[in-house]
Amino acid sequence: MHSHSETEELFSFEVSNYCANELHKMVAEEWDKGTDEDGWRKRWEVALCNAYGRADGAFKDKSLAPYSVGSTASIVILSPCHIIAANVGDSRVVLCRGKRAIPLTVDHKLEREDELARIRDKGGRIVQWGCLRVEGVLSMSRAIGDHGLKPWIISVPEVTFTPRTEDDEFLILASDGLWDVLSNDVAVRLAREEFRYQRRQPKKDDTSSHPPAINVAKELLKRAFTAYTCDNVSVVVVDLKLPRRRPHQKF
């Protein structure tokens, strides 16, 4: 999520909340419309791109939010064999595999030469205003919303497919409020330590106890604020060590 003034913060929350509540439904609808004619990867790419486009298109209606606000959006789809990640903006998805931190998305920042060239090719200006910004306003190159900066700011997600392994431990999905103050390696190390601590705790029979992943996310949130992050922070942790159904073996 991002905004350009405090008065627009509420509207920016509206965009991010809309994405949180509706984007996954759009992905499911777009998947159902597709076929495997061009392969399952292509079907997922089309479904995700169409869903992001629909969410972005909703904010052409100015009654929902001003054209000056928008949101990042990250999605992860888990199959028994693959991790599918999609992202626009500077939120990030990081996989812990063994002790290693593996980013599954690449931030849409203006430090990326490919993104910089795309914007300039369309006539957009890049202005140094504290950091590189499109038209002196936005410091990222893709987002949902921000219709005042079209066609330079696009909502097309980059999609990655990562085969799952037995060494995969967890995923961290977080906004730049976390990644601005914690590196991928540090965030994964802290999360692994918190997972070990949580799993050593005696199990409670009552329904009030949280799964370890929730407490790990809370710990990362706390660490971000302890490190004096200057941005809002959203964190989701997905435990990949939970039992999962195996695909049926075909002979």
Rank of each mutant, 00 (worst) to 15 (best):
T72R: 05
G177L: 10
A58C: 11
I84H: 09
S183H: 09
G53W: 03
E37M: 10
V46L: 11
Y67W: 12
D205Q: 04
P151S: 14
L10V: 13
V93N: 04
K62W: 10
A28D: 14
V134H: 04
A117K: 15
S79G: 07
Q198T: 08
E111M: 12
R223T: 02
S175G: 08
D36W: 03
S3P: 00
R142K: 13
I77F: 10
D146N: 15
M1H: 07
F195Q: 02
L48R: 09
E22A: 11
R54W: 10
P211Y: 07
D180K: 14
R133P: 04
A191W: 00
L48F: 07
R199E: 14
D107T: 09
T207V: 08
S74N: 12
D206S: 05
R199P: 09
Q198L: 08
W31D: 06
S209I: 03
P243Q: 10
C81E: 12
W31Y: 11
T160Y: 08
D167F: 04
Q201T: 02
S139D: 15
S141F: 06
G136V: 07
D168T: 07
V181K: 04
E6G: 06
L182N: 04
L104W: 01
N184S: 14
V127I: 15
C49G: 04
R125K: 15
M26K: 09
P247A: 15
V127K: 08
V106R: 10
D107C: 13
R192Y: 06
P247N: 12
S12V: 06
V76S: 02
P211W: 05
S175V: 07
G53P: 03
R97M: 00
P212I: 00
A191H: 02
